[in-house]
Simulated scan of single mutants.
Amino acid sequence: MPDSPDILVFGEVLFDCFDDQQVLGGAPFNVVWNLKGLGRNPLFVGAVGHDALGQRVIASMRTWHMSLAGLGMSENHPTGRVEVHLKNGEPSYKILADQAYDHIDASQVLEKMPQHGLLYHGSLALRGEVSRQNFQHLCDQTQPRIFLDVNLRDPWWQHDEVVGYLQQATWAKLNEQELAILSSRPESAPIEQAQCLRDECQLEAVIVTRAAQGAFVVSRDGSVFETPAPAVPQLIDTVGAGDAFTAVTLIGLIEAWPWPLILQRASVYAAAICAMRGATTDDPLFYIEAKSDWS
């Protein structure tokens, strides 16, 4: 790569497979796509299989001018898939086992990751022992600042494991439902739950998204900042809104924006994603317009 990445994104790339179409996604992949669209230089660390879906991932990354330096190829495991079934309009999901993203090799990116750099990951891609061990080796070697995006996907998570990831992280983002599940004080109000989680896991900040109720953050110094959810006059779907929110939050941390500004810009950007179909777009004008009022 001609330039060092400003953030490593470790995790799954997969396809949501409906009866009639296959939609490229995965929370980490959505995040890195947004980061690239918004002008950052991220490096995606993941894996695909030697199959047609893997070739689609590679083609999409090339089209979006994303580096392939961190993308591994698994000989014996397929590109990630999630089977989506609709019944009476309501989707159900089956996250398939033993996919390529369960076998991520991070050794090829060690030299690209600066000491104490910024590393994003979710919790799903750490379900597999190979990916988990490689992730930990990457952390041991580079001592990064870690942004954990909690994604509790049944049956692929264990409470104690996720708490361990939280204790290793610098910042954590999760939704209100995930916060209540992980909190040691589930009967408390959300802000108190987040404060407790921050203290127990020694986090710099806990960021909580609350859908139509907006978002809030509790920081290490005890400050609490809240933002309402912006109106979305032409709501199409909320797919990828959380990943969009995360991408802007990461940019804010890189740029040292104050928390009120991070929350405001992240919420506005997530609302813009809700006004289009799907989690991402390959239209660069969308991203140019989205950051046009950042200065």
Rank of each mutant, 00 (worst) to 15 (best):
P5D: 02
P5K: 00
D6L: 00
D6V: 00
I7N: 02
L8P: 03
V13C: 08
F15S: 02
D16F: 08
D19A: 14
D20R: 14
D20W: 03
D20T: 15
Q21P: 00
V23G: 00
L24M: 13
L24I: 13
L24R: 01
G25C: 09
G25K: 06
G25W: 08
G25L: 10
G26D: 07
G26C: 07
G26R: 01
A27V: 12
P28C: 07
P28M: 07
F29H: 09
F29T: 09
N30Y: 09
V31M: 09
V32P: 06
W33S: 12
L38S: 08
G39H: 06
R40I: 00
F44P: 13
V45P: 04
G46Y: 01
G46Q: 04
V48L: 05
V48E: 01
V48C: 07
G49E: 05
D51L: 02
D51N: 05
A52T: 14
L53T: 06
Q55I: 01
R56K: 13
I58F: 00
A59C: 04
M61S: 08
R62T: 14
T63S: 14
M66L: 15
M66E: 08
S67V: 04
S67K: 01
L68V: 07
A69T: 12
G70M: 02
L71A: 03
L71S: 06
E75M: 14
E75K: 15
E75Q: 15
H77Y: 15
H77E: 10
P78F: 10
G80E: 12
R81T: 15
V82L: 08
V82T: 13
E83F: 02
G89F: 11
S92L: 02
